[in-house]
Computed example of a mutant assay.
Amino acid sequence: MGADAAFILARSFPIRESKEGYLETIPEIVVEIRSKNDTQPEIASKVTEYLDAGTLVVWILDPDEQTVTAHRLDQPAQIFRSGDNLTCSDLLPGFATPVVRLFGGV
């Protein structure tokens, strides 16, 4: 399993790696960018895999729809659209970025 981006908060430091160099520290946030070849079942499987491993939030960026879907264990998915700000106040206090900027907009 290899995320497009992963965020490990300072509280999880020091980062642990296997002797082969694989990350053993579970990131709090994982980002996946949906490609044209990704099916919905493949995306759902990745989300489940990350959450089951202990990731707290999985963001799925969909360039075609220009949305970010935030997944958390045992919670309904939250969809951020191009007019919204992407936030994650419990893990990243003060973080907010316009979703449209993630897809090359102003």
Rank of each mutant, 00 (worst) to 15 (best):
M1C: 03
G2S: 09
D4E: 04
D4W: 01
F7N: 03
F7C: 05
A10H: 11
A10R: 15
R11K: 15
R11S: 12
S12W: 03
F13N: 15
P14Y: 13
P14L: 14
P14C: 14
I15R: 11
I15F: 02
E17S: 02
E17A: 07
E17W: 00
S18A: 03
K19H: 12
G21Q: 10
Y22G: 01
L23A: 05
E24A: 10
E24G: 09
T25I: 09
I26H: 04
I26N: 04
I26P: 07
P27T: 09
P27I: 07
E28F: 08
E28A: 12
E28Q: 15
V31R: 00
E32R: 06
I33G: 03
R34Q: 11
R34E: 09
S35Y: 03
S35C: 05
S35N: 11
K36Y: 10
N37T: 15
Q40R: 13
P41E: 12
P41T: 12
P41N: 10
E42R: 14
I43D: 00
A44G: 11
K46L: 04
V47Y: 04
V47P: 02
V47E: 07
E49D: 11
E49L: 14
Y50G: 07
Y50K: 13
D52H: 15
D52L: 13
G54F: 08
T55W: 03
T55V: 15
L56C: 06
L56N: 09
L56P: 04
V58R: 06
V58D: 01
V58A: 00
V58T: 01
V58F: 01
V58N: 03
I60Q: 04
D62F: 10
D62I: 10
P63K: 09
P63A: 04
D64K: 15
D64G: 10
Q66A: 14
Q66H: 14
T67V: 09
T67G: 03
T69Q: 01
H71G: 08
H71W: 00
R72G: 05
D74M: 12
Q75Y: 08
Q75A: 05
P76G: 03
P76I: 08
P76V: 00
Q78S: 08
Q78P: 05
F80E: 03
F80M: 06
R81P: 05
R81D: 06
S82Y: 12
G83R: 14
N85C: 07
L86I: 08
L86F: 02
T87L: 00
C88P: 04
C88Y: 00
C88G: 08
L92M: 13
L92K: 14
L92H: 12
P93A: 14
G94N: 13
F95L: 12
F95T: 10
T97D: 00
T97W: 03
T97N: 05
P98Y: 12
V99G: 08
V100P: 02
R101Q: 12
F103C: 12
F103I: 09
G105P: 09
G105M: 12
G105C: 09
V106F: 08
V106T: 13
V106M: 11
